[in-house]
Amino acid sequence: MPDFDLKPGVGAGQMTFGMSPQDIRKVMDGEPVVFRRTPSDDFPCDFFSEAGVFCYYDKSGRLNAIEFAQPARPVYGGFAFVGMEFEPAKAALASLGKIEEEPDSAISLGLGVSIYSSLAKDDVAAPVETVLIFQEGYYGRAVGDQSEKTGSEK
């Protein structure tokens, strides 16, 4: 499996934020599984199972986040986070930018990168299961904030 170079604010590999599902499908191998994470999602997601890559789209159908699970190998700052023990991965992410910590995740809103391990609540040596790279504002929309900031409001 090739590495996916994470580019904060831009995307990963050949995928860039703002691309349409059709554009994403041209640069990814295989047919995606198309689904909605929740019934209220405005736009369906793509899952490229052979690559371990989830592509999430905003209500306009434009790529705004990419999540990586095994066998994907997302790399940022020299770290390949998927499969790393959670505590060292969290420290590595913190060395690259300020993070917000949860028992099972670490999020750098400034970088637009987060890591997740469902087992880390009970075992900090548990492996990182997923890495998410997201566009600015992704988490605001994810929790129900429908407002879009203009350049002067940022």
Rank of each mutant, 00 (worst) to 15 (best):
I66N: 04
G137F: 08
G83Q: 12
A126N: 06
D3I: 15
Y139H: 15
K90M: 11
C55R: 05
G137P: 05
I107W: 05
G30Q: 10
F68H: 04
F48E: 01
M84V: 06
E87C: 01
G83V: 04
M15A: 05
F4R: 04
R37M: 14
G9T: 12
E100L: 13
G110Y: 05
S114N: 15
E67N: 11
M84A: 00
A12S: 05
I133A: 00
Q22I: 08
D145R: 14
G97V: 12
S49Y: 10
E67W: 00
K7Y: 07
K149V: 13
S49V: 12
G18K: 11
A126E: 06
S152G: 10
P8K: 09
G83T: 10
S95V: 13
I99F: 14
A51R: 09
A72F: 09
S95Q: 06
D123R: 05
G61R: 12
K59N: 10
T16D: 09
S95M: 11
E136V: 03
I115R: 00
E50F: 05
V53C: 01
F35K: 13
D5T: 10
A92R: 15
G9M: 12
S95I: 08
S105M: 01
M19D: 07
M28W: 04
G144L: 09
A89I: 09
I133P: 02
G61F: 12
K7E: 13
F134V: 01
K154I: 14
T130G: 01
S95P: 07
V10W: 03
D46V: 03
